[in-house]
Amino acid sequence: MDSQSKNTSASGAAGAAGYSVNLPSDLEYIPPLRQFVAEIARVEGFSKKFCFRTEIIVDELVTNGILHGSQDVHSSVTLAAKFEDGAMNLSVQDQGGTRQNLENLKRAVYSPKPPSNDKKKGRGLVIVQMLSSEIKIDLGENGQTQVHVVKTKDPDENQPQREKLLYESDL
């Protein structure tokens, strides 16, 4: 992945536990991105199950942003993740799809139901709903769509114990 030519950037700092990634509207970028966010969750001390669920949530939201919230291949999707107080706050912003895309998104988020069994698509936000504690949609002035998700630690988990990164000192 060429970070400059592909307009992909990531920033984050240990301790702040906030990360932001901007990626082109191309599905190929999703697998490393979802694994990156799951790895951050692991480092932040969350359980393996929490990390797997995080990976799924990131995957489904970014896939939706790329497939339904992008006008063309030059569009981009921005993901921001923050881990604090035993919870993950995630937001995925796209550049806005068609009016129909937006109506479909609202319906999927606020009154989700799985599609009929013969449909290959349409289950992503049902999964996100089930794995998240909160989900909401914000609309930007220029048609951008931002989906916010909060996922608190699972009830059977202890408070996450953050792993120390290599470059962090004890002081």
């Binding site: 797997f52 013969d118 290959k120 698509k121 349409g122 289950r123």
Partner: peptide, 16 residues
């Protein structure tokens, strides 16, 4: 290791 909603969609398709 991993399957997402798109992957599940085709598993249902194979079954059908």
């Amino acid at each position: 290791r991993y399957v997402n909603s798109t992957g599940l969609g085709i598993l249902l398709h194979f079954s059908k």
